[in-house]
Nucleic acid binder design. Sequence first.
DNA 1: CTGTTAGCGCTTTCAA
DNA 2: TTGAAAGCGCTAACAG
Lengths: 347, 347
Amino acid sequence: MGRRGRVAPSQRVRMADVAEAAGVSRATVSRVLSHDPAVVEATAAVVREAIERLGYRPNRAAQALMGASRTLGVIFGEPPDRASALLLRGINEAATSKGYALTVAIATDAGGEELRRGLNTMVEQSAAAVMVLPATRLNADVLAAADVPFPIISTTDLGPGSPCSVAALDELGAVDAVVGHLQEIGRNRILHIGARHETLVSQFRRGGWQARVDEADLFEMADEWSARGGYEALHRAVARGARPDAVFAASDEMALGAMSAAGELGLRVPEDLAVAGFGGLPVTEFYGPGLTTVATAPQERGALAFEECMRRLSEPDSPPAHRLLEGELVMRPSTVPAGGSPGVSGL
Amino acid sequence: MGRRGRVAPSQRVRMADVAEAAGVSRATVSRVLSHDPAVVEATAAVVREAIERLGYRPNRAAQALMGASRTLGVIFGEPPDRASALLLRGINEAATSKGYALTVAIATDAGGEELRRGLNTMVEQSAAAVMVLPATRLNADVLAAADVPFPIISTTDLGPGSPCSVAALDELGAVDAVVGHLQEIGRNRILHIGARHETLVSQFRRGGWQARVDEADLFEMADEWSARGGYEALHRAVARGARPDAVFAASDEMALGAMSAAGELGLRVPEDLAVAGFGGLPVTEFYGPGLTTVATAPQERGALAFEECMRRLSEPDSPPAHRLLEGELVMRPSTVPAGGSPGVSGL
DNA sequence: CTGTTAGCGCTTTCAA
DNA sequence: TTGAAAGCGCTAACAG
């Protein structure tokens, strides 16, 4: 057959097949699929039966070509840790239940080039909205300047003036709770171990600590956002003469490394050195004697971000919202000796 | 405008806009985009300039409607741990560089219902191929029976006879290396702590251990795949009279919990109780005295899975391949006292 | 080497 | 309440 522009039709069951099987037109099948109340129940039942029998699945690409797409984008800017996996899970659960599919991209570079590419991918995929976990300030600027046809929801606080919605942890409040706790138990030489100074979370954690602490010699930059980074940082700080009575590490893993270094330095935790981290996944109960930390609810953050997507989509003209989730201080023996009363307290 | 079937054209720059700006036809733009050598360089340059200037991004939905789609699916069946995040990163890196976008779904239930839904999502998204991390045997059966228009690549070993390609860790070999190591250092009462018996990885780890160990009283089922699970399991095992001289835990976190329990029971690690885990992320260096484990290279596994996708796509008629990655035994003080010679040895 | 044109699978007017 | 037909943005077959 020499017809021009001929394209091999796919093997897949199409709407036309369903229509034929049900003895109706394609338009009617389409209406049944979108729960159009105009279709009389008897007809709808026949159509649904045919859909079921033939195993018909609509082609999203064709749907997206017409109107609103049912795809949401997720761009990861955080390191590939467990929290990011949980965040994805939170988003997925909510999205699946509402019939949305998820497309992902990863953008961990500081410069924003990967983020730009990620956003382009989302445009190409006709995403209806995109959730982003921007890593750095530059990334945040890329978001603000992005020329994209969908709303952006950031799961890191971008501060006021950003055109993006925010569904994030109240970082400053959470840090304040940990550092405040260390001060309440009588520590006044609180060393902060940070890393990757260019990232937004690093800046938040350091900023929250700075707001409560004066001594400039009590900051130590770790090489990496990891246990080894925390381990080496504490060793370095002590070697250069810092004499902390507490450590606030920017991540739980760094805190774990710091506790290991403390052991080598002959410092007892918590008697000589109270140690607190940030993150709060269940495993931290077994970090050292049990690590004091802040639970950051990544899964809830994901659900919140999705909710904000839906809100922006249903009220296209509403301004971007700024929704913050409270962290939860978890007190454990690394700051409160077993004799004390460890436990959990809301902020 | 009373034209029938009217649909609001999108605001986005379309191929037609580029064509007009460049003074060529849409077909030529399309050819430039797909690097068709038939287009003379001068024309191509003009087109590329117009694309750049207008900020044109092709609409994937429209592309997918025609021929091969540039979307790959990833279905997670593993718990949301760091390894799964790394696996995604490995896939993403390879996929991005080849111009593929990624769609994700999550299917962690044992029954396979979520997996079926996930596969449906991938059909709807016109995925060209799908990578799956199936959790359970039932999930594997769903995969085998799936009626889908794309090749499936499993990142868990499905054994022979499966219609899916496999790009996975050599689980049995890796377990054999750990348990063999424990035997080589003279341990012969090796307790295995497992969990979630319905999952394939649990079965592999238990099977590998069983192949080397006789005593039936040396298996203890943990409630969860976590540090707390390992902690409680060791306590239970000792309480019921098991007298292990070593522990092989099915995950690093369970091993961490077991070491904590060992401390409470007055057992020194490794003198009284050697402890080994499974997973091998860097943080395990700071689990207890340093945890012996197996590195499972999740990122490499992701890259391998992607490679296998490409192979299946370029050779549609070739049979599914079975590609296994070797684990790497990492010996640390939890089995080899500091006096010994800890280090890394390939399998 | 480039343009014309048909049609991918779907939704949406408009008419009946 | 349902059907006919147009067209979403793109690719590919064919003609020139």
